[in-house]
Design a protein around this nucleic acid. Sequence first.
RNA 1: GCUCCCUUCGUCUAGUGGUUAGGACGCUGGCCUCUCACGCCGGUAACAGGGGUUCGAAUCCCCUAGGGAGCGCCA
Length: 471
Amino acid sequence: MSVRTRFAPSPTGYLHVGGARTALFSYLFARKHGGQFVLRIEDTDLERSTAESVNAILEGMTWLGLDYDEGPFYQTERFDRYNQVIDELLARGLAYRCDCPKERLDRLREDRMARRLKPRYDGHCRGNAVDPDRPHVIRFKNPEEDVVVVDDMIRGRVVFSNAELDDLIIRRSDGAPTYNLTVVVDDADMAITHVIRGDDHLNNTPRQINILRALGHEPPRYAHLPMILGGDGTRLSKRHGAVSVVAYRDHGYLPEALLNYLVRLGWSHGDQEIFSVEEMIELFDIGAVNKAAASFDTDKLDWLNQQYLQRADPARIARLLSPHMGRLEIDPSSGPDLVDVVKAQAARAKTLTELAEISAFVYRDFEAFDEVSAKKHLRPVAREGLERLRAAFELMAYEDWTADGLRHVVEGVAEELGTNMGKVAQPLRVAIVGRAASPGIDETLMLVGKDATLRRIDTALAFIAARAGTE
RNA sequence: GCUCCCUUCGUCUAGUGGUUAGGACGCUGGCCUCUCACGCCGGUAACAGGGGUUCGAAUCCCCUAGGGAGCGCCA
């Protein structure tokens, strides 16, 4: 039988990193075994499910490249099927109608809590003939004896006693089926062989297995993934900044970097840190996934993103960078090829957003010198060097404005002055970039171009003069 | 409260009875160097606690502590 996994989010929010990792692991497992990966939208909670959420989830999946073979299937479109199954359970005496009033249920709950017991429905209506025409819910008749064994691919053997379980509601009084029923029917109908999901579902699993068995199905294999915690070790939430995967895209992260980060959360392969998707598929082993929850560490994600920024095709990075330049109101087509900028800058940024910020100087004059840099490098002693450089640059023809030619000019001026490169290049760098960090001075000059270089040196000389006057 | 799950550097992890407890991020010292970054070399830092079992425990067992999940006409 071919392997079939599924990702089954409920559309009550965006796709967050925890969900994305669950989807990734399901995807990898299916791909590794040559099986299928199914997307199912669990939207039976009409109150909280929204179309925007569905779109956000699909958008996140697409951005990450987690392509599914079937779906998206929507549970709201399968109510007839669920009801058919519930009726069958009812007819076979495996489920029953219950009209216990809320007050009775509340009292039961309080009673049991007071007696230090787990709140649990007592099966009061099991033998009652409840009028089908009066308001009621349908409960599944859970076995009272024995145990249910979950042979989890990550947790190992987990045993639950049926005495701990109660007769759960499978159809609400409004006629809508509930989660534990729909999951089971869908996983069976969709021939899911491996259920990979968050470990918040581990406690639901014995109930689902019981329903599955009542329906005459063999349960699938289960793998319950540990949760992902925020950087402070608490549950992931909006407090932790960008929790939506699409927000990571907007903040300038590469999908392959996020995927790589996520796959290493709870899983590893020796000392390897960098994995392409192809490698993940080849090496991923669900049985080797950790049991303990992991904390999300933005610093490490940043490092990975920088690694990918350096290694990726510059042309592709340039395309992705363009909108980030746009956000700074810069039109890259107005200046040097963005691909050249990417080649010069890629190793210097952690995100596309940062890459755009540190590259803005190529396309437009900066507004003010970085205070610390200017104080250190734009001093009267730098004046003569800048003047000589300016004179030399002015004499250069536009077609000679090359990295090699520019480096010779700067080196030449340093030699004339009998000083080292740093004494000449740093003031020049601050003059044309605005701060003391940029690619090599030759590359930097080349990207900025002759006109802007001369203009900015003039500005810097004026700055030095003004400063000399006030001191 | 009850049931289930979890526990190695700050963080992600390797480790399956004998290791100087390894790697990565971060932090940090240095090298490279026209700056920053990259890269390279080095440092910092962990087996939650207590009992067992064993010649020998991070590894096996028990207890405690701490954390998490579930106990819904949410999923």
